[in-house]
Amino acid sequence: MLELTRITAGYDRRAPVVRDVFLSVGYGEAVGLLGPSGCGKSTLAKVAALLHRPDAGTMTLDGTVVRGWRHRAPQEQRTAVGVVFQQPRLSADPRLSLRELIAQPLRSTGRRREVPARVAELAPLVGLSEELLERRPHAVSDGQLQRACLARALVLRPGLLICDEMTAMLDASTTAALVAVVETYRAESGAALLAVGHDRVLLERWCDRTVRWGERSVERVPVG
C-alpha cells in the first residue's frame, strides 16, 4: 500500500530531521512506528500523508509513484489517505460544528449529498450523540473532539489511515475506544494503518508489527 524509499525530509535542507528512511506498509497491514519525541517521525507521517514534500527519496502509494505533495498531489490520491493528528484542538477549525467538521472532506470532494447519511453512519461508530454533533470544538472535551477528527479521517473511506500520536493526550478508556473504532473500520474495509507513537505497549498491542526509529535514521526492521 505504502512504500517509502530513502526519504529525506525536514524544514531546512541543511538539517533534515528525517534522513534516508525506508518504510513500507502492506495492503491491510497495521504498522506501528515507534520513536522518541522529536525524532522526526511526525514529519515522516506528514510525508506519507502527502502533506509534506520530502527533499529526496521516492514514495509509492497504492502502486502509483507519488509525483507531488499537498495541492500538487491529485485529489484522489490525497483522499486515499486519512490522517488523525496528536492535538485535536489544533486539528479542528474552531468555527465549525463537529457535524460540519466530519462533513468537510465530503464537501471538498463535491459529495455534499452524502453528508447526512455518512455522518449519521459514522457518529454512532465514534460515539458522538446528535447533541454533541451540533457543538463547536470549544464546547467539547479533547476526547470528544478527537472522536470527531477520527470520523473526519474515515468519512471518505481511505485505503490507508495514518494516526500520528492519535491518543497521546487521551485517557486509557478513550484510547481503547478510538483504537476499537479504527480496528472496526479496518476489519470492514481492509484498509492499512500506519500508527505513529511513542507508547510501545500500545502500538505492540494495536499493530501487526512495529518499526523502531533508530538513533539518527530508521533502519528496516524485520517483521515480527
Binding site: 502527502l50 502533506l51 485529489q75
Partner: peptide, 14 residues
C-alpha cells in the same frame, strides 16, 4: 495549523 493539513488531506482545493 494541523486543521489546514486536515483540510488538504480531505481533498480541499487551494
Amino acid at each position: 495549523r494541523p486543521f489546514i493539513d486536515a483540510a488538504v488531506s480531505g481533498g480541499a482545493s487551494r
